[in-house]
Amino acid sequence: MAIVFACLVAAYIAVLSWPQPLFAHHVRHQNYEVWSDQPIPPQIAQVLDDATRRLRGSAFHAPETPIRLFICNANWRLWIYGQHFSARLGGAADTWNTRNIYIRAADIAGNRIHSPGPGPIADAAQRTLSYYIAHEATHIDVGRQYGRLVTLRYPQWLLEGYADYIGKGGDFDFDENLRLFKAGSEKMAVSKSGLYRGFHLEVAYLLEKEGMAVDALFANPPDQSAVQAKLMAAPLR
């Protein structure tokens, strides 16, 4: 039994480390390599170019850095590679091992991911497929900069807030989201909405309103409650 268990563990580690054989379709575009379990339409080039546009706003992204992207149209693939053993994720980044990016079932031609549930994707106009690619690529870039255990070193609000900040590519109304925050809207609480709007607002405030440099923010992240207190005191326009 122990030998069987050890073999199963070894097989699972191998699948995690070398997922390519489970994805039949593969294309290259600039610094991207994309694998999918379904044919990849030519519109992937426009999607990736838009992701690159968003990533240009990141202090940590280098254009020549390889990006390995896997589109998991079959839920069981996302379950295996999503790190949280969930098929309801929009995407996941393996920052500690392969530095691969995994995205859920997607309509590549339409630049969107498919909803994991019966309802539509929340904030779908902003959270396109290229948003998810840039968001997860930002996690990889931060991991390259600060180490494979980056998720243990930094608070969630900073990691997800910065990834949302880059992934949105400037498509974020600071004043409107500040109003929602002050009003206690559920949209600003990730535990209720599943959205990173509140985290994004906190990062945007520090970078844009207080003028913090990104490297200084990661060198000494402020206490989240202190940032939220400043947001509550900030005037509305």
Rank of each mutant, 00 (worst) to 15 (best):
A2G: 14
T151C: 09
Q156W: 10
Y146I: 06
Q145A: 15
A124V: 07
K187R: 15
I40P: 01
P19V: 05
G119P: 04
A204W: 03
P235V: 10
Y131C: 01
I44V: 15
A219E: 10
V47Q: 09
D123P: 02
L69P: 02
F172R: 02
G211L: 04
Q126W: 08
P155N: 09
H139N: 03
E160T: 06
L55F: 03
Q83E: 13
E33H: 14
R68H: 11
R112C: 01
L231N: 00
A213D: 15
A219Y: 04
N177A: 02
A59L: 06
P155K: 10
A216Y: 06
D50C: 08
R28S: 10
L178V: 02
L8H: 09
A45C: 11
A59K: 14
V27H: 00
H25A: 01
A24L: 10
A234S: 09
N75V: 07
W76S: 13
A6I: 13
P63R: 02
I71N: 01
T95S: 06
C7T: 09
A87P: 08
T138P: 03
R144V: 04
E202T: 10
I133L: 07
A124N: 05
K168D: 09
E33Y: 03
Y205C: 03
Q156E: 13
W76C: 00
W76L: 08
F199Y: 15
G91E: 08
L129Q: 05
G119L: 13
Y32M: 02
T128N: 05
F181W: 14
L201S: 08
A233W: 01
A216P: 04
P39M: 00
L207A: 04
G82T: 04
K230R: 15
G194Q: 08
I101P: 01
G147C: 03
E208I: 04
G198L: 09
F5C: 08
A216R: 12
G91C: 06
E176T: 14
R88F: 12
R53K: 13
N220Q: 15
D171Y: 07
I101Y: 04
A92C: 13
A45G: 00
M212C: 07
N177I: 05
P116E: 09
I113D: 00
P63F: 02
P221E: 01
A229Q: 14
R153L: 14
I3F: 07
I80T: 11
F23Y: 14
Q30M: 09
S193V: 03
E208H: 11
D171N: 15
H84R: 11
F218Q: 05
R56G: 07
I108K: 00
I113G: 00
D215C: 03
V214S: 01
A11F: 09
I140M: 02
H61V: 12
L78F: 05
Q43G: 04
E186T: 11
A234P: 00
S130K: 02
Y162C: 01
L8M: 13
A122C: 07
D107P: 02
G169I: 12
N100A: 05
G169D: 08
M188A: 09
S86M: 06
H200K: 13
P39E: 00
D171Q: 12
T95H: 00
K230S: 15
L178Y: 01
E210K: 15
H200F: 10
F174K: 04
A163Q: 03
G170Q: 10
Q126P: 00
E176N: 06
L16E: 11
S225Y: 08
